[in-house]
Design a binder for these strands. Structure first.
Length: 640
RNA sequence: GGCGAUGUAGCUCAGUUGGUCAGAGCAUGCGGCUCAUAUCCGCAGUGUCCGGGGUUCAAUUCCCUGCAUCGCCA
C-alpha cells in the first residue's frame, strides 16, 4: 500500500461565522487531499470546530443561549458550508464530542504522570467585568480599558505545562528536518522565537471562573484551557491510542494553519506530542491572510460584501481556482471581485475555455466528432507530439503540489495550455484541412491536442473537480473511471481513437465587468433587498453636512398627523424638529434620548410646524430605528 | 513597547547560494490569423528593485538604520 496521507485544518473557533479565511484553509486542504488521491494514496481529511472557553460562554450569553446550544448552532453553520464548497471531508470533529474529551483527559493524565505538568500559584491584576487578568501595560491610567474600573490584585493557582524541558529537543528537530515548518519564513520565525527561553504554558482555569471546558483528570476543580483541549483533536479524531485510523494515518500527517496560529502549532503542539510519547507530525504548512479590497467589490449584494457569496455568482470552480492561483502560499494576498473576474476571463474563459472549445470544435468539423488515429511515423517526422511537454508539466506540477506551492502547480498547467494555443497557431489545422494530402498531419495535430486536454482535465481535478469531470465527459470519457489518476495521466495515448465526442461546450462564459446593473441584480439572487448605492462623493462633499449629537427635551405628537412627532431638542442650542417616527416610537420614550441630527438642513414646515433640522434614522419596511451614539456626549458635539 | 515578515513596472506578483536579475501575467499600444467564448499568436514599452548609510572589484540580492504595511507577543 502507498504511504497514507492525513491532512488537517485548524478546528475553527465558534465565536465567529465562517468567512473567507476559513474557506481558503479548508479548500486548500481539500485540494491537497484530492491531489494525494490522484497519487493513489489512502487519504484522511479532518476539520471541525473548537467550542470551549470563556469567549464562547460570553457570546452565548449575549444571544441568551446556553454555551452548548450556541456551539451547536455555529458548528452547524461550518458543517453546512463545506459541502457547498465541494469539500470532501473524512471527519468533522467537535471539541465537545465525548470521544475527544476522553482522549484529552488521557493525554493530560499521561503527561501529568510523567511529571511535565505542575501546580503553581501566582498573582495578578484581574478585572471581574472582563473575567481576565491584565498586565500593567494593557491598563489605561491603571483602569481596565473596557470597564474603566480598577482591576483587583488576586492570587490564583493553576496547572502549567513544562515546555522549557523540551526546548532544545524542538530546536534540534526543526534543524534536522528543514521542511518541518514551511514555507521557510515561518520556520525561521519559530527558530527565532526559540532563541529566547521558553516559558511554561498555563493550561487550566479554575471552575470558579470557567465551567465550559474539559475537567482535568487529576483535579476536578479545574478545566483545561485552550491548547490541550484544541490541538489534541488531531489525534483524537483518528481514535488515539488504539483506533485503526490512528494506526494507519499517524504520523503521516500534515497540518495547515494560517500564520496567526503559528506558535501553538509550531511550538506547543510538537512539544505536547513529544511529552505524550506520540511521534510528531510531518509538516506544518503555514499560509497568509486574504486582505479584502472593498473598493474593488461591486455593491450588487447590498452593503455587506461577503466574498463567499461570490461563488454563487461566478461559480464554485472559478472561485476555488482564484483562491489557489492568486495566493502565493505563505504570503498575504488581496481579494477583490475585480481580480476574480479578471482571472476568470483571462485564464479560464480565454485560455482554457477557448482552447477546449476550439479543439473540440475542430474535432467535430474535421473528424465528424470522432477522435482521430494519429500515425506515429508522421507524428515523429513532423515533431507533432505534445507528449514531452505534457510529461514536463506533470513533473513540475507534481513537485509543486508536494511542496504546497499551489499557485506554481496551477501555473504549470497554464503554461501547458499556452503551449497548446501556440501549437494550434503553428500547425494551422484549418489550412491542413483544405489539403487532402495533409490529412495525417491534421489527424496527429488534433489527436495531440485532445490528448493534451485529457492531461489538463486530470491536473485541474484537485482545484476544479466539477470542471475536470465536465471536460472528461466532453472528451468522450467516463469521469467515474478515476480519470485523474496520475499514472493514467502520464500514460500518453489515453484517448481511444474512433470514440465519439459529445457536442462541444463553453466551459467558462466570459463576464462583463463592471457588471450591468440589471444583469447582476438578477444573477445575485439575493434575499438582501438593500437599495443600490449612491454615486461616490468626496470628503469635501461629505463635510458640507453638519451632523450633531442632540438630546431630546420634549416630545409630542403632531395633531392630525399619523407619523409625525414634534421634538424639542438641545443641539447646543434649543430647536424644534419634526420627525416621521410616530409609528415606531412613543413620545414619552424619547425624552432624554440622544439622537443624531442634520443641523444645517434648510428649515421646512411639516403639517404647519417648522422643523429646524432632521434626525437620522434607519427606515425599514416595518419599523424605524433612530441613529444614536454609543455613550453620552454633550449636546452639539459634531459627528464626522 | 518586544519579536518576526513584507515593501520590485499602472495592477497582482516571480526573482533558489551577490556578477546577462531588472522579469512574468493582467491592463495599454501596434501587427497577424480565423479553428474558437471578439477568443488566439507575435511585437512594443515604461521601473531611484521603499528611503539613507555600510561591506565588496561588483548588491534588488549581505549588514546597519529609518519609513510604511501585516502577524505574533506584551
Amino acid at each position: 500500500m502507498k504511504t497514507p496521507f492525513y491532512i488537517t485544518t485548524p478546528i475553527y473557533y465558534v465565536n465567529a461565522q465562517p468567512h473567507l479565511g476559513h474557506a481558503y484553509t479548508t479548500i486548500i486542504a481539500d485540494v491537497a487531499r484530492r491531489f494525494h488521491e490522484m497519487c493513489d494514496q489512502p487519504t484522511f481529511f479532518l476539520t471541525g470546530t473548537d467550542e470551549h472557553g470563556d469567549k464562547i460562554v460570553r457570546a452565548a450569553r449575549r444571544e441568551k443561549m446556553s454555551p452548548r446550544a450556541y456551539a451547536d448552532k455555529v458548528s452547524a453553520q461550518f458543517q453546512a458550508l463545506w459541502p457547498k464548497l465541494n469539500i470532501d471531508l473524512s471527519r468533522f470533529i467537535r471539541t465537545t464530542d465525548p470521544g475527544h474529551q476522553l482522549v484529552v483527559k488521557q493525554i493530560l493524565q499521561k503527561i501529568y504522570d510523567s511529571g511535565d505538568i505542575y501546580f503553581a500559584e501566582y498573582e495578578g491584576l484581574y478585572c471581574f467585568g472582563c473575567e481576565r487578568f491584565y498586565n500593567e501595560r494593557e491598563l489605561v491610567d491603571g483602569l481596565c480599558p473596557d470597564h474603566q474600573t480598577a482591576p483587583e490584585l488576586i492570587r490564583e493557582a493553576n496547572y502549567f505545562f513544562r515546555m522549557s524541558r523540551y526546548q532544545q529537543w524542538l530546536i534540534d528537530h526543526i534543524t534536522a528536518h528543514p521542511d518541518f515548518i514551511r514555507p521557510e519564513r515561518y520556520r525561521n520565525e519559530v527558530l527565532a522565537f526559540l532563541r529566547e527561553p521558553l516559558e511554561d504554558l498555563c493550561i487550566s482555569r479554575p471552575k470558579s471562573r470557567l465551567q465550559w471546558g474539559i475537567s482535568l483528570p487529576f483535579d476536578d476543580r479545574y478545566v483545561t484551557y485552550v491548547w490541550f483541549d484544541a490541538l489534541i483533536n488531531y489525534v483524537s479524531a483518528l481514535g488515539y491510542p488504539d483506533g485503526e485510523d490512528f494506526a494507519t494515518f499517524w504520523p503521516q500527517v500534515q497540518h495547515i494553519v494560517a500564520k496567526d496560529i503559528l506558535k501553538p502549532h509550531g511550538i506547543y503542539w510538537p512539544i505536547m506530542l513529544k511529552a505524550a510519547g506520540i511521534p510528531v507530525y510531518q509538516h506544518l504548512n503555514v499560509h497568509g491572510y486574504w486582505n479584502i479590497d472593498q473598493s474593488k467589490m461591486s455593491k450588487s449584494l447590498g452593503n455587506v460584501v461577503d466574498p463567499l457569496h461570490l461563488k454563487d455568482i461566478y461559480g464554485l470552480d472559478p472561485f476555488r481556482y482564484f483562491l489557489l492561483r492568486e495566493m502565493n502560499f505563505g504570503l498575504d494576498s488581496s481579494f477583490s471581485e475585480e481580480q476574480l473576474v479578471a482571472r476568470i476571463n483571462a485564464d479560464l474563459a480565454n485560455d482554457l475555455g477557448n482552447l477546449f472549445s476550439r479543439v473540440t470544435a475542430m474535432a467535430h468539423k474535421y473528424h465528424g466528432g470522432r477522435i482521430p488515429a494519429p500515425d506515429p511515423a508522421v507524428e515523429a517526422d513532423l515533431k507533432l507530439s505534445l507528449q514531452a511537454e505534457a510529461w514536463k508539466t506533470i513533473e513540475a506540477y507534481t513537485a509543486a503540489m508536494h511542496e504546497f506551492a499551489f499557485h506554481r502547480a496551477v501555473q504549470m498547467v497554464w503554461d501547458f495550455i499556452s503551449q497548446m494555443n501556440k501549437y494550434i497557431d503553428v500547425t494551422q489545422p484549418w489550412v491542413l484541412a483544405k489539403d487532402k494530402r495533409a490529412r495525417p498531419q491534421l489527424d496527429a495535430a488534433i489527436y495531440n491536442l485532445l490528448e493534451g486536454l485529457r492531461v489538463v482535465s486530470g491536473l485541474i481535478y484537485p482545484v476544479m473537480p466539477d470542471t475536470a469531470a465536465s471536460m472528461q465527459r466532453h472528451l468522450g470519457l467516463d469521469p467515474a473511471e478515476r480519470f485523474y489518476d496520475l499514472e493514467g495521466l502520464k500514460a500518453w495515448r489515453g484517448l481511444p481513437p474512433g470514440s465519439v465526442l459529445p457536442k462541444t461546450v463553453a466551459l467558462f462564459p466570459r463576464i462583463d465587468w463592471p457588471p450591468k446593473p440589471t444583469a447582476t441584480a438578477a444573477a445575485a439572487d439575493t434575499p438582501l433587498a438593500a437599495p443600490a448605492f449612491k454615486p461616490q462623493i468626496s470628503y469635501e462633499d461629505f463635510s458640507l453636512l453638519d451632523l450633531r449629537v442632540a438630546t431630546v427635551l420634549k416630545a409630542e405628537a403632531v395633531p392630525k398627523a399619523k407619523k409625525l412627532l414634534k421634538l424639542e431638542i438641545d443641539v447646543g442650542e434649543r430647536r424644534t424638529i419634526v420627525a416621521g417616527i410616530a409609528g415606531s416610537y412613543a413620545p414619552e420614550d424619547l425624552i432624554g434620548a440622544q439622537i443624531v441630527v442634520v443641523a444645517n438642513l434648510k428649515p421646512a414646515k411639516l403639517m404647519g410646524v417648522l422643523s429646524e433640522g432632521m434626525l437620522l434614522a434607519a427606515t425599514g419596511e416595518e419599523v424605524t430605528a433612530l441613529a444614536t451614539v454609543t455613550r453620552p456626549m454633550p449636546p452639539g458635539t459634531p459627528l464626522r
